[in-house]
Write a protein that binds this DNA or RNA. Sequence first.
DNA 1: GTAACGTTCACGTGGCGTCACTGTGC
DNA 2: GGCACAGTGACGCCACGTGAACGTTA
Lengths: 137, 137
Amino acid sequence: MTRPHETSLDLVHIGVMAERVGLSLCTVRYYEEMGLIEPTTRTAGGFRLYGPEQEDRLRVLKTMKPLGFTLDEMRELVQLIDDARRAKPGSRHARTLLERIGAVRGEIALRRANLLDQVEATQQVTSALDTAVRHLS
Amino acid sequence: MTRPHETSLDLVHIGVMAERVGLSLCTVRYYEEMGLIEPTTRTAGGFRLYGPEQEDRLRVLKTMKPLGFTLDEMRELVQLIDDARRAKPGSRHARTLLERIGAVRGEIALRRANLLDQVEATQQVTSALDTAVRHLS
DNA sequence: GTAACGTTCACGTGGCGTCACTGTGC
DNA sequence: GGCACAGTGACGCCACGTGAACGTTA
């Protein structure tokens, strides 16, 4: 019934969106300045309004961040996903996109392996602490 | 036999040490400026010389870094380990140190859990890529 | 109308990287 | 004595955080 033209109903202010995805207002605005994301629209007074697709985008960005990617790389990735969404399946363009996606997946696997290494490394720190504990008691 | 007074023989320059532990010269010098570590001694000309115990210290610092600790927190930790090494076992001081060590271990466990969460989170990014791949082929 | 929330702009911060230039060590 | 290595500044950078001063909205 209620199909108010075209645009979605659940547009939210930056505060709500930031809270939802777990990023600070500052970060979201900075990501916009760096060209990683844009609000769906703005109010007459200039307030940013975000729709659900922006929420997805922000979630992707948030998960990428701790993997040690730079903002440039993160922009590349979300761009890539966007392009893929819009590309004609099976087309020539689609194939080159598939290749780039493969490369990105490789990068992610690498970072993931690094994270696991770091997890193991924590053992060394705790064992250093263990030594201290044994000495003290 | 060879007990050349007191000091150890294998003192190395900053370049060698940095290479060994996998930190940059800049980082090592910066850590010194921040009070996290000091060279065992210096040459007459002013070159930094590091002994094995400094290597241990740097390794601890290097493993702590990716856990997201600030330099202040890292300084606290290495100080703590130092104090523990020097404290009289079973003493009153030793007990308070043991408490602080326990707290630090808790913090490390927390960071470790965070790392593991991030590892899982990579799945979400790759699955977003998978969706794109399925769409393209 | 009044709080809470938002805007832009400018400056600060942490943890280094990067010169530039000079001084050491083998 | 020559050449790599090291020394100390000073400045630059990224990814935000932190106000200030002011406008918007439920």
